[in-house]
Amino acid sequence: MAIKSLFISLLVTIMLGYSLTVGLTDPDSYLKKIPDWMSFVLLIVFALLYILAFWWAIQGFNAHKVTALFSMALCVFGLSIYAFGIVMSLGSGRASPGQYDGDISTLVPSEKAAFDQLLHTTGLTPQQVKLTEHWHLMDKDAPLKICLQKGHITGLSVLNVPIREVGVCSQFPELGQVYLRGCRLSDMSGLKNLRIERLELADNAIRDLKTLSGCPNVRWLMLQNNQITSKAGIELFPQLIAEDFTGNPLQKDSLK
């Protein structure tokens, strides 16, 4: 029983490790290709297998003490990750007191002027702006969303609204996360910001990565459904840890 327990716990730990590393960061991973409901089912199966392996380790402890102990350690490790994930999910969606500003009037004067320019270039009104937290920037519930912290815009999302002058985003010095989806963008050379780490530009008309050279510290670059034919210029982002070019007409040579 202890040997079976070790086999199961080791296998599940390897699969869990893959899911939490390559599975989350590689856009071509198998985890990205399965529906969300199946991912949820797999997580439940993994947890049940850990519990089963732990029980088998207890049953076979007298016959194979070392093997059983090692298996139990793997089970405890795996289940502790689950417990940590549950605790984090319970706390998600709630900002700590003072973490975010709740009033646009707290913007520093220089960024207030830039924000007014952003409204002008998008044709939106202040009533269409939603203040939110970083983890809600991807939600599609408002055409313009910002994260406001200590008078500075630190996150920005524009959804399905044309942006005539993207360079205005360069005037937010603390901007770290940018989501400009469906904004009819093709030339991004006006965007120059060293603080941006996450740049999501899905559903635009971008053709060349070099037009993004003004954001060299990007770590997450998401360019789904653009017109990019080559990854030439990807070396401009030395901090890059994740990318997504799904839906682009990439040439075969550029995939190497």
Rank of each mutant, 00 (worst) to 15 (best):
L223G: 11
V45C: 07
G78K: 12
G123C: 05
V129S: 04
P249I: 13
G93M: 06
Q227V: 07
V108F: 00
C169L: 15
K33F: 03
L223K: 08
E243F: 13
L144Q: 04
E111N: 01
N193M: 04
P126H: 07
Q227I: 08
V158R: 01
L69M: 14
M15W: 12
L223T: 11
M15K: 03
V22K: 10
K112I: 00
R195I: 00
L194F: 05
Y30R: 08
I14H: 01
F70P: 01
L6G: 01
T125W: 03
H152R: 08
V66T: 14
F61T: 06
E235M: 11
L69F: 10
G233D: 14
T13M: 13
D28I: 05
L137S: 01
L175V: 05
A68Q: 02
Q177A: 10
A114K: 03
I81Q: 14
L6E: 05
Q127H: 10
R184I: 00
D28N: 12
I58C: 10
H152Y: 04
L79W: 09
E243Q: 15
K140L: 12
L209E: 10
V129Y: 03
S189Y: 04
G102V: 04
W56N: 09
V66W: 12
S189G: 03
P143F: 02
E197V: 04
